[in-house]
């Protein structure tokens, strides 16, 4: 399978008036097409920086970042524009990328219908529940048909119960659309329940500490949590993060 994203010996140093901070150093990893990967690490270790680099919003101070294809970005909060209807929110990336054609809009509506948003197209974000809003944000990310999805802790602003459901929801949508995704999270069990591959980062400056391929029978996050090997994975990762 072809590589969608590859970091090779990447260093990133932030410069401010007060000094410089090296967020990442000698970070090397790659992601193959169709993989659902999660990246975990101690808080403040520069996980979000990895996504900014992958999206091309930051340039590495050293090393190379190779991305083949287009990206879609999903953030902690849904970031739906409150003055636009859900439908108009879904068209936003099309407008930005000058792809706002009737066919693309039709495709966006199909996606919305497929994942249960068709009744809400004319509603404003404030009229939707947190879970539905996050689903709308995901569909918005999918309408441009990106090759790689970058998910920056997309569930952490939700309450626990909604979070489990939305995570399962997102995993289901991404897997049935056959998307490659890189999920950043600080929640170990979230990473285990969702990902095929888990990257573990060290504290700042972040390097790759370990890369695991999970071996679950199910792809459903809620079922995975019930599998006996779940706790084994949890313990492995816990130890790596807290040596």
């Amino acid at each position: 399978m072809k590589e969608i994203l590859a970091f090779d010996n990447v260093r990133l140093t932030y410069h401010t008036k007060r000094g410089e901070v090296t967020a990442l150093n000698e970070l090397t990893f790659s992601l193959r097409e169709g993989e659902f990967a999660a990246m975990i690490g101690p808080s403040g270790c520069g996980k979000s920086t990895v996504l900014s680099l992958a999206a091309g919003l930051l340039k590495p101070s050293e090393g190379t970042v190779r991305l083949s294809g287009s990206i879609g970005y999903m953030l902690q909060r849904d970031e739906l524009f409150p003055w636009r209807t859900i439908e108009k929110n879904l068209y936003l990336p099309l407008e930005i990328q000058k792809k706002n054609t009737p066919e693309r809009r039709e495709r966006a509506k199909e996606l919305a219908a497929k994942y249960g948003l068709d009744g809400f197209l004319k509603s404003y974000p404030a009229q939707l529940s947190g879970g539905m809003r996050q689903r709308a944000a995901l569909i918005r990310t999918l309408v441009t048909e990106p090759d790689l999805l970058l998910l920056d802790e997309p569930f952490s602003a939700l309450d626990y119960q909604t979070r489990l459901l939305v995570a399962a929801d997102v995993a289901h949508i991404l897997r049935s659309e056959g998307k490659t995704a890189l999920l950043i999270t600080h929640d170990i069990s979230e990473a285990i329940s969702l990902a095929d591959r888990i990257f573990v980062l060290t504290a700042r400056p972040a390097r790759l500490l370990a890369s695991h391929e999970t071996d679950f029978l199910s792809n459903d996050p809620l079922k995975r949590r019930e599998e006996p090997r779940f706790s084994g994975w949890f313990e492995t990762l816990w130890r790596e993060l807290n040596p």
Binding site: A55, L57, Y73, I96, L150
Partner: peptide, 8 residues
């Protein structure tokens, strides 16, 4: 950030 990631 979202808009910039979309390439705006």
């Amino acid at each position: 950030l979202l808009l910039r990631a979309m390439g705006a």
